[in-house]
Amino acid sequence: MLEIINGTKKFNEGTGSEQTALNQLNLKVGTGDFLTVIGSNGAGKSSLMNAISGGFYLDKGKILLDGHNITYLSEHKRAKVIGRVFQDPSKGTAPNLTLEENLALAYSRSQKKPLQIAVSKKDQQVFKNLLAQFDMGLENRLKDKTGLLSGGQRQALSLAMCIIASPKLLLLDEHTAALDPSTAEKVSVITDTLIRQNGLTAIMITHNLSNAIKYGNRLVMMTAGTISTEISGEEKQNTRPSALMELYDQDPVLY
C-alpha cells in the first residue's frame, strides 16, 4: 500500500554541512504490515517518517500510497489518511482543550460538516470505549484539560486520536522514548493490541531492540539513508537483541 521508490533527500546542499538524509531509499509496505525500524542516530529514520508524512518533499524519487502519487501532496492533506504519533508528548495534543475535544478534533477528519457541534453524546460514548482499553482511567477524565495529564497519558491520548481517525497508515516516531519504563511498556502493549485489533498498517521507529523484535512482522535497519538489513517472519522472532547490537557497531558514522 505504501511504496517509496529511490527516495533521496539532502540537507544544506552545496555547503560544508551537506547531509544526505535519504539515499536512494526503496521500501514497500503491504496492507496490514507492522514494520519496526531501527538504526543509529542520523541513519535517516526520522527523515523516513517526515518523507512519508509530508514534513518535507523529496529531492528525487517517488512516494505512492495505494497507487496514488503523493510525492508532492501537502502535509495536511496527507494527514487525512496518515496518522502520526511523535516522540514529544506535548506535540500530539492541545493542552488547553479537554480530552474529549482533542478526540473530537481527530474524529472530525472523517466528517464533512464544519458547523456541527464538535462533541455529541454519541461521540462521547465512542471516546469512552476507546480510552477504556488503555486501562489508565482516562475514560473518566474526558472533561479534563489535556495539559493536566502526565507524559504517558498524553501519548496514550495521541495514540487514541490517531486510531479514532481510522488512518490507512500509522507512523510511530519513537513514541515511548520519553516515557518511564513502566509506562513505556504499557503504551507499547496497547499500541500492538490496537494495531492488530484494527488491522492497521504501521511503521514504528524504536531504540528498544527487544520491542523491535517482539512487535510487528518485519524489522528493518537503516544505515546512512538506506535500508541495510531486513528481517521478517520466524527469523525475526528468533533474533537476539545482541545480534542486532552488533549490526549497530558495524554502522559507519555518517558524518
Binding site: A79, S90, T93, A94, L97, A104, L105, R109
Partner: peptide, 17 residues
C-alpha cells in the same frame, strides 16, 4: 474547535489534517 486548537498547539495542528 479547529481554530481553538490552532491557537493552542500550532505544531500539532500543522501535522494534522
Amino acid at each position: 474547535l479547529s481554530i481553538r486548537a490552532t491557537g493552542d498547539n500550532e505544531a500539532m495542528v500543522k501535522s494534522s489534517s
